[in-house]
């Protein structure tokens, strides 16, 4: 009986909240800015606590269930913190071995793979001039030279100098990238830097509201807010627009560098479920062998 209710609360209550977001999203932000602040009355479902157990039959069974993590689901409709519900997190994603070395490799990879060095030096052939023999081979009492742009000369060419563009592109092995994500999520959760909220609906588009909320809850200073949907509601987009240290990101774009760049990571329930589903799929996929091997530029 209890389980039924729990399942119901997961399947029914949550989509209601989501559709509410979408409808407010579709309207023009400018015309809706004022009414949305007043309209954001708490939905009817708020009174029931949102308890989301992990369904291990559907999801992938973990190595050990005793290490499963539980986290509070917090509200976003007011500055004051209120616990809306409880979510059970999959241990293979949120309590994985914290491989700090793999996190470091991910950070290094993210920095390097898109970096193109523009440092450039000219060789003796490229430096202007130097075609003429500066002085005769013999009879001048000076050392023999064929060009004034040899590397021996001041203002001459450079041997083995940096040549641009030099790409530093490489790919980290696929499962190191997966492990980097699970490790970082686990580290963030262990260090109390991961918070789960019910959604990204805030009552106003005022940045001060978000500032107060972050100060009240001891988040931050820098905060990364992640939702499953890449279309964020107007209010939160407006509020975070002027705050350089509060950023929004869809869960498909979540990466190790951004998680570490921000002090606090805030995930919505939908983002948590999406991340769990994607990462557990990668950890259990049938064609995992095909993800190994050298990265080819034309691979699909």
């Amino acid at each position: 009986m209890l389980k039924n209710i729990l399942n119901k609360s997961r399947q029914v209550l949550y989509p209601v909240a989501r559709t509410f977001t979408r409808s407010s999203n579709n309207h023009n932000a400018a015309t809706e800015a004022v009414p949305s602040a007043t309209e954001a009355a708490p939905p009817a479902t708020k009174s029931t606590p949102l308890i989301l157990p992990q369904d291990y039959a559907v999801n992938y069974s973990p190595v050990s269930r005793s290490t499963a993590r539980q986290a509070w689901i917090e509200n976003t409709d007011a500055v004051a913190e209120r616990k809306v519900g409880l979510i059970e997190l999959h241990p293979d994603v949120f309590a994985a071995q914290p491989r700090v070395d793999i996190i470091q490799e991910n950070v290094e990879w993210q920095r390097k793979y898109r970096y193109v060095s523009m440092a450039h030096t000219k060789t003796r052939a490229e430096v202007r001039g130097g075609g003429r023999k500066p002085w005769p081979q013999k009879g001048m009492g000076r050392a023999r030279h064929g060009s004034i742009r040899t590397p021996l000369f001041k203002g001459g060419g450079v041997v083995h100098g940096p040549r641009s563009p030099t790409t530093h592109f490489y790919m980290l092995p696929f499962y190191k990238r997966v492990l980097g994500l699970t490790s970082t999520l686990s580290v963030k959760l262990a260090q109390d830097d991961l918070h789960i909220v019910e959604g990204v609906d805030i009552p106003t588009g005022d940045a001060q509201f978000l500032k107060d909320l972050i100060a009240e809850r001891n988040w931050g200073p820098s905060v990364l807010i992640v939702d499953e949907d890449h279309m964020f509601p107007a209010n939160i987009s407006q509020a975070t627009d002027s705050l350089g240290y509060v950023n929004l990101m869809p869960s498909f774009g979540l990466n190790v560098y951004s998680m570490l760049k921000h002090d606090t990571l805030v995930l919505t329930v939908a983002a948590v479920k999406h991340l769990e589903q994607r990462l557990l799929y990668q950890l259990h996929r049938n064609d995992a062998a095909s993800k190994g091997g050298k990265f080819k530029l034309d691979q699909v």
């Binding site: 190595v63 290490t67 309590a95 071995q97 914290p98 970082t184 260090q191 109390d192």
Partner: peptide
């Protein structure tokens, strides 16, 4: 079970933020 990863995560709670 999961002793080592649990130990490591517990240790991380006392350490400065991984950045």
């Amino acid at each position: 079970l999961r002793e080592t990863s649990d130990k490591a995560l517990k240790l991380l709670r006392t350490l400065p933020r991984v950045q």
